[in-house]
Simulated scan of single mutants.
Amino acid sequence: MLTLNDAERLNPLSDDMRQAFLAALEAAMTDEAVRSIVLTGAGGNFTAGADIRQLMLAGGPDPARSRRRLTPLHRAVEIIAGGPKPVIAAVEGAAFGAGLSFASACDFVIAGEGARFGAAFGKIGLTADCGLVWSLPQRVGRTLARDIMFTGRPVKAEEAHRIGIVDMLVPAGGALSAALTKAADYRGIAPLAIAAMKSAFVRGPGSLNDALAFEIQQQPMLSMTSDHAEGVAAFREKRQAIFTGH
């Protein structure tokens, strides 16, 4: 479980938070003992997004610094969306800006009643970032994604669930527990199989031929794994498979 933790200020993504989050995410993705990742926030909020105090610097705009600050967030989104392990967002309270981007890139989003999502980038003269123009339309469709980003309006949990930002809605305060239960559900699937499917999903819808070509590359390799042999044996023996990621 990875927790964004600066609760007094709604867990804003300061420069230090960005670097620490990326390091923790990379470590979790490469740790063989970790089968899935739950992303949450401390103090009853997910994250309010960018640390606005760090946007207001003496000396005026600095495009080079802006690029440097985006780099760890971009890498984090790439890992969330395309990394080999499932990532589940457990959202309570505010999930604004990059918080919505992170959630939208996750494999499954669970929110507590009372959660709020928003993309008010345009209200401070900026474009949506952290891949939101890629991830949000996949969840809600292009028209709704445009409306959410063009208006910057907050989307309450009930609407977010209805339109597809949220995959499961639970009572307030219950998102983390539900996310941990969902993470346990994924343990019944071979890790290398999940990694292959995530790699296919992140390539985008593409054409049928693209999908078939990717399958013919991945499936023969997976057929050689110990997990495949274990899965077949467990099926024959009518028992739960024990997968190791090899």
Rank of each mutant, 00 (worst) to 15 (best):
11 N>C: 06
13 L>Y: 02
13 L>N: 03
24 A>T: 10
24 A>S: 14
27 A>D: 15
29 M>V: 02
29 M>L: 12
30 T>S: 14
33 A>M: 13
33 A>N: 15
35 R>T: 12
40 T>H: 07
42 A>T: 04
43 G>T: 12
48 A>L: 11
50 A>P: 00
51 D>W: 10
52 I>D: 12
53 R>H: 09
55 L>E: 13
57 L>I: 04
58 A>Y: 05
59 G>L: 04
65 R>Q: 13
69 R>M: 11
70 L>G: 10
70 L>K: 13
74 H>V: 06
74 H>T: 09
75 R>W: 02
75 R>S: 04
79 I>N: 05
84 P>N: 06
85 K>A: 03
86 P>F: 04
88 I>A: 02
89 A>R: 01
90 A>M: 11
97 G>D: 11
102 F>G: 05
115 A>M: 01
120 A>L: 10
122 G>F: 08
127 T>Q: 11
130 C>V: 11
130 C>N: 04
132 L>C: 05
133 V>M: 08
141 G>F: 11
147 D>R: 11
150 F>T: 15
152 G>P: 06
157 A>D: 07
158 E>Y: 10
162 R>L: 10
167 D>F: 04
167 D>N: 14
171 P>Y: 09
176 L>Y: 13
180 L>W: 05
184 A>H: 12
188 G>L: 01
192 L>K: 07
194 I>Q: 07
196 A>H: 04
199 S>Q: 15
199 S>C: 11
205 P>S: 15
205 P>F: 15
207 S>N: 05
208 L>D: 05
209 N>H: 15
217 Q>D: 15
218 Q>T: 07
219 Q>G: 06
227 D>C: 02
234 A>W: 07
239 R>T: 08
240 Q>C: 02
243 F>H: 01
